[in-house]
Design a binder for these strands. Structure first.
Length: 573
RNA sequence: GACUUGGUAGCUCAGCUGGUAGAGCAACUGACUCUUAAUCAGUGGGUCGAGGGUUCGAACCCCUCCCAGGUCACCA
């Protein structure tokens, strides 16, 4: 990374000034009429060649092939790339050929937005193109885009692939790798499909607080913040469960929320500090009903994205049509380890972990130990959608006790491609039991479990007023989108994955140099010469700096006056 | 947090046992009226992630740090 402007950036800034000198506003304020997109042209023109004979089109210049007085360029709009054909004598009707010779050939660059008017035709080599009759600059680009070349088979040359640059500069990534847009279009479709399905059932989309005084509803480490006026600590939510259940208490039959959750934990290819969850609560239902709802909902999502319930993920073909396989937690452990852990006590479970070479620590209770065995031996095998049901009570403080099985709760998690994507309960609505469960969490916390859930007194008060039997579901949207778009990292399905901030090299401001008496126009030259701070400049030899200024003036072809030697010497005073 | 791989021109990458920094694309100058990874001729462009050390000499060797990818740990 160079400090000042690169050669290409300087050239573009000069072009910008020349455009202004020609009376062309590089950033015009007025709207530009666009009456057709690439997608529409490519779809409809081959069927009816009389279409699009008087169009107004806009896009970003992505390539140019100039051949004397005629040129081809590719313009990229939101739907694709369209080739345009520009002929000098057609866009410059009179004697003045400046628009073509100077503006188009010299002053426009890859990355600029332009508008064109003209008609659609097919070239001799068979490509549908726009024959340009009018050309207008809509926005000048000052930084050169990475050039990604593709041949006819779609092979990519010089791809823009560095993940760091792709994630930090998504706008560049999406510009030069427009296929990526499909991931985000599908993401939007996943959410809208779910939303439409829920709305059709009469359930209502709601919003609940992101800033919460108690981070309840899940086991995770939160982000902590502070409200100045209230002078109190607040947490960014790790879940919205307890608020949504308050709304069921309030008398809504079905509420759901798509929203960001925040967890102050590790980051990797399946975890971003903020992620999108969908939680839904429906009164008078239970977790068995919820399984059917999930099957129906996911099949609709798969159909909306792929027009099929079958989705290719990595080397697997995953079928989202229900019914899905259902295994209890204990059955699944028995299936994949051959061990029946259903009757074991804490010591017995600890021994099983030892036998299976699974690490444990003393803070782990019975529930956590079972979860460890499951996570280590079972989870990765669950490729096709599978409901794991009936979890140990200890690890699930917000779910209702199982209607018939002692020590278990009515809960399921949905696993797909070896990863959990959903979690649901018959919600605990017995306020006395709920208080006891919170107290059990306190015991775990005292044993050193950092993630044990805190007691929420207001939530308990709400339950005491009475909550109908309710089925609740939490859904990891990012992970679902990963499945639906066949991506292996969460970063690829987020527009702006979390990154460490870029370190800016310490550079003196223009004002710092001006304070020394350096003329404004010479400041960039000093920066270019490598003097990033006033201190660095002062440490240099004044005579050499003076001489070098002349050298730089010549090298950069600058048309500015060199300060006198006396002036330069004063910089060092 | 641990281990590991990487950071060189606007982009993608070479750079041998340490000896004056290279290519393709992009840019610039010129030729060219249906090209399409356009073509042809010529030119410029680098704090080799940052800072220290070893050396006559460091992109290269050593140390520290920064950033990213991968694996693991934690988690959804």
């Amino acid at each position: 990374m160079s400090i000042g402007l690169s050669e290409q950036e300087i050239i573009r800034r000069e072009a910008l000034q020349q455009l202004r000198n020609l009376g062309i506003n590089p950033y015009p304020a007025e709207a530009y009429e666009v009456n057709v997109t690439t997608e529409e042209i490519l779809k409809n023109y081959p069927e009816d060649k009389t279409l699009y004979q008087n169009i107004s089109f806009a896009g970003r210049i992505m390539s140019r092939r100039i051949m004397g007085s005629a040129s081809f360029a590719e313009l990229q709009d939101s739907t694709g790339r369209m080739q345009v054909y520009i002929k000098r004598d057609e866009i410059c009707l009179g004697e003045d050929k400046t628009l073509y010779n100077t503006v188009f050939k010299k002053l426009l660059d890859i990355g600029d937005f332009v508008g064109v008017k003209g008609f659609v035709f097919t070239t001799q080599t068979g490509e549908i193109s726009i024959h340009v009759l009018e050309l207008k600059l809509l926005s000048k680009s000052l930084k050169p885009l990475p050039i990604v070349k593709r041949d006819e088979e779609g092979n990519i040359f010089d791809g823009f692939t560095d993940p760091e640059m792709r994630y930090r500069q998504r706008y560049v990534d999406l510009t030069v790798n427009p296929d990526l847009k499909q991931i985000f279009i599908k993401r939007s479709k996943v959410i809208s499909t779910m939303r439409n399905y829920f709305d059709a059932q009469g359930w209502m989309e709601v919003e609940t607080p992101i800033l919460q005084p108690i981070h309840g509803g899940a086991a995770a480490r939160p982000f902590k913040t502070h409200h100045n006026t209230l002078d109190m600590p607040l947490f960014l939510r790790i879940a919205n469960e307890l608020y949504l259940k308050r709304l069921i208490v309030a008398g809504f039959d079905g509420v759901y929320e798509f929203g960001k959750m925040f967890r102050n934990e590790g980051m990797d290819r399946t975890h971003n500090p903020e992620y999108t969850a969908m939680e839904i609560y429906v009164a008078y239902r239970d977790y068995i009903w919820m399984m059917g709802m999930v099957e129906e909902c996911l099949e609709k999502v798969a159909l909306a994205i792929h027009a099929s319930s079958k989705v290719t993920v990595g080397t697997y073909e995953i079928d989202f049509a229900g019914p899905y396989e259902k295994l209890t937690m204990f059955e699944s452990i028995q299936k994949y380890t051959g061990i029946d852990v259903s009757e074991l006590d804490e010591a017995g479970l600890r021994q099983v972990c030892l036998d299976l070479k699974i690490e444990t620590d003393p803070s782990m209770g019975k529930g956590k130990l079972i979860d460890e065995i499951f996570g280590e031996k079972v989870e990765g095998n669950l490729i096709q959608p599978t409901f794991i049901t009936d979890y140990p009570l200890e690890m699930t403080p917000l779910a209702k006790k199982h209607r018939s099985k002692e020590g278990l709760v009515e809960r399921f998690e949905l696993f797909v491609n070896g990863k959990e994507i959903a979690n649901a309960y018959s919600e605990l609505n017995d306020p006395i039991d709920q208080r006891a469960r919170f107290e059990d969490q306190l015991l775990l916390a005292n044993r050193g479990d950092e993630e044990a859930m805190a007691t929420d007194e207001d939530f308990l008060r709400a339950l005491e007023y009475g909550m109908p039997p309710t089925a609740g579901l939490g859904f990891g949207i990012d992970r679902l989108v990963m499945l639906m778009t066949n991506q292996s990292t969460i970063q690829e399905v987020l527009f702006f994955p979390q990154m460490r901030t870029e370190k800016k090299m310490k550079v003196a401001s223009i004002a710092d140099y001006e304070a020394l008496g350096v003329p404004t126009e010479w400041v960039p030259v000093l920066l270019k010469m490598g003097f990033n701070t006033v201190e660095e400049l002062k440490a240099a030899n004044p005579n050499k700096v003076f001489n070098d200024l002349g050298g730089m003036r010549k090298k950069l072809k600058l048309d500015i006056t060199i300060p006198s030697k006396e002036v330069v010497l004063e910089w060092f005073a």
